[in-house]
Simulated assay, not measured.
Amino acid sequence: MARIAPCLWFDGTAHDAATFYAATFPDSRVDAVHRAPGDYPSGQEGDVLTVEFTVLGMPFVGLNGGPHFTFNEAVSFQVYTDDQAETDRYWHAIVEGGGSESQCSWCKDRWGLSWQIVPRALTQALASPDKAAAKRAFEAMMTMTRIDVAAIEAAVRGDDA
């Protein structure tokens, strides 16, 4: 058993979210569903209270705590991708069905949880020892929502593409 797991607060949809994440990302699954042994402020005995799940090998707990707290951008999950196809697949899965796009690789899923879908090509470009190339990649990224790997690579090369 893991020694630490982030607990994500949902308003009655923890199982739906965990099922979505398990279907979207590899090495992901719903591990356990726990029902409330009694009534509680946001639910009744027998309702799903917590869901243990794994996303990309990392354990989480989803708590159906009610409408009192919501997600914000102060916490986001960065998912590193190997190519444009993987970037696009995760991005579209997250924003479709009620999610939303933001800037510079950020998006939100239908539950309001923030994600950053980050191609490794971008992180490598931004860490380049060639400061001019890193700056061009950064400036290109600042114009994007979903990251375009080819455009980042062109910026590193100094192409006008």
Rank of each mutant, 00 (worst) to 15 (best):
G57E: 06
F138P: 04
E139D: 15
L49N: 11
G66H: 07
S28T: 08
A121V: 03
A155M: 04
P41R: 07
F71T: 02
A125W: 01
I152T: 05
G66P: 08
L122C: 06
A2Y: 08
A134W: 11
G43K: 10
A150P: 02
G99Y: 01
D159N: 07
S42C: 12
H92Y: 12
C104M: 05
A32E: 15
F60M: 05
R29K: 14
P41M: 05
D83H: 01
F53W: 03
V61D: 07
E153R: 03
F25W: 14
T13K: 12
C104Y: 09
G158W: 00
W91L: 03
A161W: 00
T123G: 02
P67A: 04
C104E: 07
M142T: 06
F53M: 12
S102G: 04
D83W: 01
V33T: 15
I4V: 15
R35N: 15
A137Q: 06
F77E: 06
A14F: 06
D148V: 12
E139S: 11
A32D: 15
D11C: 05
F69M: 11
G158A: 01
F71E: 07
G38N: 14
P67Q: 02
R136W: 05
T70K: 13
K108W: 07
V118Q: 13
V51R: 12
V61I: 14
D109N: 11
V118F: 03
R136H: 07
D83E: 00
M1W: 00
V30H: 08
Q103C: 02
Y90G: 00
F10E: 12
G12S: 03
G46P: 13
R157H: 01
A17M: 13
Y40H: 15
T19S: 13
Q116T: 10
C104P: 09
N64V: 07
D109L: 08
A151Y: 06
S42Y: 07
G38C: 13
L8P: 11
W115G: 01
I4H: 12
S76C: 09
A17W: 10
A17D: 13
Y21G: 10
L122Y: 05
Q78Y: 05
P6K: 07
P67V: 02
H68N: 13
S102P: 01
V55H: 02
A121P: 01
R136V: 02
L113P: 03
N72K: 10
A23Y: 11
D88R: 13
G38P: 04
F25A: 15
M144V: 09
C107S: 05
N64Y: 00
E73A: 11
R120E: 10
V79H: 00
A127S: 15
V61L: 14
G97F: 03
I94S: 01
L56F: 05
A151M: 09
E86F: 01
I117K: 06
G99R: 03
A18P: 14
W106H: 09
T19K: 11
T143I: 01
P6H: 09
E139R: 09
R146N: 05
E52H: 10
D130C: 02
R3N: 14
G99L: 02
P129Y: 05
F10R: 10
D88F: 05
D47K: 06
I4E: 08
L122I: 05
Q124C: 06
P37S: 15
Q116F: 08
T13E: 11
I4Q: 12
A2P: 14
E101Q: 12
C107M: 04
T13H: 09
A140I: 06
V118A: 12
N72Q: 11
C7W: 02
T143D: 04
D130E: 05
S114P: 10
G46K: 12
G97D: 06
